[in-house]
């Protein structure tokens, strides 16, 4: 029942170390572009007239929020791992003694 999918070689570009760096640069560039686009909206449309909260209209608010929150979550996760991480066999029924 093996499917006849195209072999992944053609897609190697996506994951080769050399090309990933390029993708990362594209990502950073798009981020900058998005901030610029946001500022563009401010000058060329009335989009910011109807925001619910004032801080939504700060330049790059969403981007900064996303970045900070993501880093915060990851560091919280690292801290949490120190608290709640246990060996994989922790609940294993046949090894109750080892986990104590």
């Amino acid at each position: 029942m093996t499917g006849r999918e195209p072999d992944g070689d053609g897609l190697r570009l996506l994951v080769e170390p050399a090309t990933t760096t390029r993708w990362v640069r594209v990502l950073y560039a798009v981020c900058v572009l998005l901030v610029v686009a946001g500022e563009g909206l401010r000058f060329f449309s009335h989009a910011f007239d109807h925001v619910h909260y004032g801080f939504e209209a700060w330049p790059g608010f969403y981007g900064a929020f996303g970045f900070v929150v993501f880093v915060f979550i990851v560091y919280c996760g690292r801290w949490l791992r120190g608290v709640v991480s246990r060996p994989e066999s922790y609940y294993r029924v046949d090894e109750p003694e080892r986990s104590k």
């Binding site: 981020c31 998005l34 909206l41 790059g60 996303g66």
Partner: peptide, 16 residues
């Protein structure tokens, strides 16, 4: 605005 804001949020987080 919604599209740009959401993309900012997501892509900056991805960048992070």
């Amino acid at each position: 605005l919604h599209v740009v804001g959401q993309l900012q949020l997501l892509l900056f987080a991805t960048a992070a």
